[in-house]
Design a protein around this nucleic acid. Sequence first.
DNA 1: GTGCCTATATTTAGAGG
DNA 2: ACCTCTAAATATAGGCA
Lengths: 219, 219
Amino acid sequence: MEANTTATTYNKSNHKQKHNKKQTKGKQKIEMKMIQDDDDRLITFSKRRSGIYKKASELVTLCGGEIGLVIFSPSGKPFSYGHPSVDVVAKRLLLDQATGAATSDAAAHPIVEAHRRLRINNLNQQYNDLFGHLETEKEKQKELLKMPAPDELWAAPIEGLSLDELNERQRCLEELHATISNHVKERLTRSLNSFNNKDKNVSTPATAPSSSSLFSKRI
Amino acid sequence: MEANTTATTYNKSNHKQKHNKKQTKGKQKIEMKMIQDDDDRLITFSKRRSGIYKKASELVTLCGGEIGLVIFSPSGKPFSYGHPSVDVVAKRLLLDQATGAATSDAAAHPIVEAHRRLRINNLNQQYNDLFGHLETEKEKQKELLKMPAPDELWAAPIEGLSLDELNERQRCLEELHATISNHVKERLTRSLNSFNNKDKNVSTPATAPSSSSLFSKRI
DNA sequence: GTGCCTATATTTAGAGG
DNA sequence: ACCTCTAAATATAGGCA
């Protein structure tokens, strides 16, 4: 940030360097996928964890409110950050729940939307799965699908027919999506190796022998 | 780069510049203290909350591990983000503690109970959880979107397409889906607000008969 | 592992729809 | 409210101590 025009500030040790040669590579863009090198991954974890802590504290400072954060490192070590403390945040959550105060209004309405978004998230999860990301999202999906009496959530008053139409269309989209996902998945099974580059042109023969069981069609 | 003579005057030598006018002020530095203006604070809260969600998901993607995050907005509404889910993280924390595993921060225990109860009695957490993911995923998907006429998607034969084409189609579907969802959301919000009474019972063609009390949504 | 450094990549404040 | 746009502020990858 401080780096002004000529970028010659790295010579702390009065060692003269080539004047117009870059001292470092600067921040390089990295692919958003699991870092394979153990060492790099650990370093990145540390740095980014700090970054998140900072963001969290800034959010609290700027906007007030409370925050609690727990992170398990790839090696399983737990870290946490909280303001005023994880404890306080957790207790407040309990208190709100017990008194049914702040959460009741927030909960009642989003119920419908929760269901809606649940279904959307379903799609996202499949999408991610196709690209080899967020494999464990499925766990959450499962848990969420256990939501009590989802059907009751749809009794909300709705202002018009067009909404139903939208819902119907939504449903169709989901089916189509699932179908396409299936096909993609099948192809992927046979050309998995080439699929790291998302814009790589990967084409395969047109039919798949098996592997349809790989992808359980839901929704 | 270096914050040179800021904004207002872009004329280095005190004469009129025709094309040098800045279109916006760009990101301005702000003091790290509570934002007083209600509106600004709310906006900043939203933006930064999304930012943190993204950072969290990136951390998980790059490094693996698990993360659970709970935020109370200044007005007391709870938000959360978790991977694989807040519940999983909480349970893991509990497990670690039960087995006496090395806990770098033991203060987080109550969060476990909090989330258990939340999950049972209140969908708000799930809602926010999903919302966070949705926002994050939406950005990922946005990068390569080009939406053809929706109708073409419906009739499109799946069989003859390359993997690339299928992937592209997926993205279109995602976007379409999100768009429709937004419309539904808006309508629901509006209608729910206007039918803000308890036990409003308006049945929709295909689903359950009654709903519980509904309240307006706010941050 | 932590901390510093630079050069970039990313985030986001502010203003408009 | 939520999205877009832009320019400036931050975060951070890759190195080194």
